[in-house]
Design a protein around this nucleic acid. Structure first.
Length: 459
RNA sequence: GUGGUUGUAGCUCAGCUGGUUAGAGCAUCAGAUUGUGGUUCUGAGGGUCGCGGGUUCGAACCCCGUCAUCCACCCCA
């Protein structure tokens, strides 16, 4: 049998893990710096928790877990009708936000609000794999729940900027607001079909405003309306703006005002407030861009939405998030608003590799600083004592476990990029010295055991 | 779910218009070097050519099917 792993999953070898850990640790340290607390939730959730939270497409991409045990046999043998719930009642988590909402409701009495939590775990999607798209991948989420303040949005933007600055990945932070999109939907008389509408609007960059309107018409989604004239001008002019210019925004705001779209105006106010606070308080290293076509597919967003795209790398977004006003409501805890962002570690990895950002990082070296060559029974005991001493002094040391040829043991040290090798044979044991070899220079020196730490630059 | 790409040694690939024992580099192992790696030299092992069927005197190569892979659409981290 040829061994293989499921479609869209990957093994991570030591070299990759070192790089991945660097990414995890960097993100984690920024989260901690901002006062977030870590939690974990189970890989699987009850389907009732997951279903209907991610839109129609999301439901299709849920990994469902087959019920185990006698149930399966029963189903196979039964001639009666099989209900969905008999076959599967659990699913792998699709993101970290929905399980978090479930967690908050379940633990509401233990939580002090506003609750700032972060979570670093895998999620699974039954998508077709392709570039930058996997069926199992990690998300690093930071959410603030139980606070309506827009300062939270500001903080998330700061975190995003900080993280990608540390990675040296140039990014564009795109922002928009679902309330603005709702406002536009109102002007187009599309209030009822909001979901369909934003999916079409999302394509504006590819097919243009006219393309969007044509597609809306084709789908019978729009009615000709004087208001549309007003809004289409504003949209066309305000597709994007960067770095604080709010010209285009005020344009759209005017349209909202004339048409009395309260949500729309609220959305504009929020975007402007967030932008102003960011610019007043923070020197961003990356550019922030208002993009009216930014929609995001997840159903639960209601306010600010954020998406981060790496410049010069085509890979979709590396980070995304937004505000959800009533995600906990479905689980029985209404009126709790939250905002969050999610970093896609696997895509960040791909981007860093493409931009050759790992080259500058020392990720190849083994953690072991010194290897003791194994010469035989007596030497083993002698060396093991030394190894133990070195370890208690905080030096990563190991003894080669088998009495293999020296050549093989040296190759082992070399392959693992262990910088020092200690050779202790009969002669050395007699003299109480250790022959220390620097693997980079090839130099060898006889030293006393108390000098080892010094020699390998640990003192 | 729709469209396309590619499947040859552990890895990366070559293999002419179908023609005899299917090759290379890297990796592995052994030796040159019985207390020394990374360099060099010598040698060795390793392949149902994704799988199944068909055409043919003859198929890695052509045809059909199937599976896998990667890429694009959709959607997304």
């Amino acid at each position: 049998m040829k061994p293989s792993i499921p479609k869209g999953t990957r093994d991570f070898s030591p070299a990759e893990m070192q790089r991945r850990n660097y990414i995890f640790e960097t993100i984690k340290s920024v989260f901690l710096l901002h006062g977030f607390q870590q939690i974990e939730t189970p890989a699987m959730e009850n389907l009732s928790v997951l279903e209907g939270k991610y839109g129609e497409e999301g439901d299709k991409l849920l990994f469902r877990i087959l019920n185990s045990g006698p149930v399966l046999e029963q189903i196979r043998n039964s001639k009666s009708e099989i209900r969905n719930a008999d076959v599967t009642e659990k699913g792998l988590r699709y993101d970290l936000t929905v399980p978090f909402a479930r967690y908050v409701v379940q633990h509401r009495n233990e939580i002090t609000f506003p609750f700032k939590r972060f979570q670093i775990q895998q999620v699974w999607r039954a998508d077709r794999p392709q570039k930058g798209r996997y069926r199992e991948f990690y998300q690093c989420d930071a959410d603030i729940i139980g606070s309506n303040s827009l300062l939270n949005e500001v903080e998330l933007i700061q975190i995003v900027d900080k993280v990608f600055t540390q990675f040296k990945i140039p990014v564009t932070i795109k922002v928009n607001n679902r309330k603005i999109l709702q406002g536009i939907a109102e002007l187009y008389n599309l209030k009822e079909k909001f979901k369909d509408f934003i999916i079409v609007l999302d394509k504006i960059e590819k097919i243009g405003l006219e393309g969007v309107e044509n597609e809306l018409k084709e789908k019978g989604l729009t009615q000709i309306n004087i208001r549309t004239v007003l809004i289409r001008q504003s949209i066309a002019r305000g597709l994007k703006f960067t770095d604080g210019s709010d010209m285009a925004l005020s344009d759209i705001n005017n349209a909202f005002q004339k048409c009395e779209s309260e949500v729309g105006m609220k959305g504009i106010t929020e975007v402007v407030a967030i932008a102003n606070t960011v610019y007043e308080t923070t020197e961003l290293k990356n550019s922030i861009e208002f993009d009216i076509s930014l929609a995001r597919g997840l159903d639960y967003y209601t306010g600010a939405i954020i998406e981060v795209k790496a410049k010069d790398v085509q890979i979709g977004s590396v980070c995304g998030g937004g505000r959800y006003d009533d995600l906990t409501g479905i689980f029985g805890l209404p009126n709790v608003s939250g905002v969050g962002i999610s970093f896609g570690v696997d895509r960040i990895y791909d981007v860093m590799e493409e931009l050759k950002l790992f080259d500058a990082l020392q990720t190849e070296q083994s953690s072991t600083e010194i290897l003791f060559v194994n010469f035989g029974e007596k030497e083993e005991i002698f060396c093991l004592k030394l190894v133990t001493e070195l370890r208690s002094a905080g030096i990563a040391a190991e003894l080669y476990p088998d009495r293999d040829k020296i050549k093989k043991q040296m190759s082992y040290a070399n392959d693992r990029k262990i910088p020092f090798v200690a050779l202790v044979g009969e002669e050395e044991m007699k003299s109480g010295k250790v022959k220390l070899k620097d693997m980079n220079s090839g130099e060898e020196k006889l030293v006393g055991k108390e000098q080892i730490a010094e020699m390998i630059g640990k003192k």
